[in-house]
Design a protein around this nucleic acid. Structure first.
Lengths: 219, 219
DNA sequence: CACCCAACTCAGTTTGCTCTCAGCAACAAG
DNA sequence: CTTGTTGCTGAGAGCAAACTGAGTTGGGTG
């Protein structure tokens, strides 16, 4: 799921876009005006932003300028009813990465978003784990404190399974079947939990005695 | 002066664009057909490319595909007489960063180029690698300790690909296709990794067992 | 033609991941 | 406290993956 911030005051267009973008793998957050867009963009992290140009409270290009001046580098695409060449030039020079004039077709918006995101492979499959995030494609955990840790194939598979459903407890037989290809001895599971804890600390996986293992600490 | 490759078969348009772009601070190289564009893009280093879509020898989108498959990450803007939404979508999905339909105004082209370069500053083909920086034009690594090391074409291509995306792991088949022209044996990759390590030390490339190789050590 | 260097193949060696096992620690129930 | 059960941990065997040195090919150059 790619987090996307949509700043759009037209309620109908906003919900339409949200519906389409959701089916394309985006996690859409909607801001109804520039002020709220500014706040969301400053406090949360998005991989891409789509902004209308004519907005209440803070005008679109002004919003881009403010964000850029504060160091926000998220790629931004402007939607606008104003489609003259000069309008486009102004929009791009304000700091937007792309500019699409209304009326536009959804398929072009999607293609332009893909082009923007192609450069930012941050949407590599990554799951949150306590103290960092698990990158399954690269088999590593990037920790919030900054460093990164390598995992072996089994370690990554184990953590990935647990991280995909935090809170739920996985039994040993279940893990044995799904990660360890139904190995001989059930203690492989213990051993690999041990390996993960050694690498990532004891906060990542907790034991539920008699049942199995679970992501995170008991709360 | 920003080196720009213009691939355009229309002589009149090419010279017009060259004149305008030159006054805007670009150093323009013109290729009259796709074959020549491919060759120039592979052998020289440009910060940005502008391609016509309808080209002799190799068609524009095909050209983009070939370059991308060989690891060229230079931002590309497509010019085209074909301006339907589907044409735009095809162009962007082929790997272009932007798509501008003819007729267009020069000022919009300039604004879009500025937007592209803002996001991808200094594609000047000097990429940071652990312990120094890789100069793809000269096929050498200048090290922080002062000395410089020459690389062969394959060594440079391999390192360049890895250095273009630090952190991400490249599989052997991927590397085989992109730098070794799909050679017979996959161990060429190992061999060249070995060569690079011999020249630059064991810190530059790390292996992720079962997956492939990655630039640098995780820290 | 002889030479050199880069590109590629190959096979013997080494590495490190996977899994087993056995002993120890923690825990719950009697 | 004792005892049985469950989980933790370190050591090590087996094996596939990766490393590496040596050799072959082929294009370019004096």
């Amino acid at each position: 799921m790619i987090p996307l911030l949509l700043v759009e005051d037209d309620q109908d267009l906003a919900t339409l876009l949200q519906r389409v973008l959701s089916t394309e793998g985006y996690q859409v957050t909607i801001a109804g005006d520039g002020q709220r867009g500014l706040h969301l963009a400053m406090t949360q992290s998005f991989e891409v932003m789509v902004l209308d140009r004519g907005l209440p409270a803070i005008e679109g290009l002004d919003l881009i300028g403010r964000l850029r001046r504060r160091g926000v580098t998220t790629p931004m695409l402007v939607l606008s009813a104003r489609g003259t060449t000069q309008d486009r030039v102004d929009g791009l020079d304000a700091g937007a990465e792309d500019y699409l004039a209304k009326p536009f077709e959804i398929s072009e918006l999607l293609a332009r978003l893909r082009a923007l995101l192609r450069r930012h492979p941050d949407h590599a499959h990554t799951l949150p784990v306590p103290g960092g995030s698990l990158d399954l494609a690269n088999r590593s955990v990037r920790r919030t404190r900054g460093d990164a840790i390598e995992l072996s194939e089994r370690e990554a598979a184990l953590l990935g399974l647990l991280a995909a459903r935090p809170e739920v407890v996985f039994s040993r037989p279940d893990l044995l079947a799904r990660v360890f290809n139904d190995a001989e001895s059930e203690t492989v599971v213990d051993t690999y939990v041990h390996y993960c804890r050694k690498k990532l600390g004891h906060g990542v996986i907790s034991t539920v005695r008699g049942l199995g293992y679970r992501l995170g600490r008991l709360s």
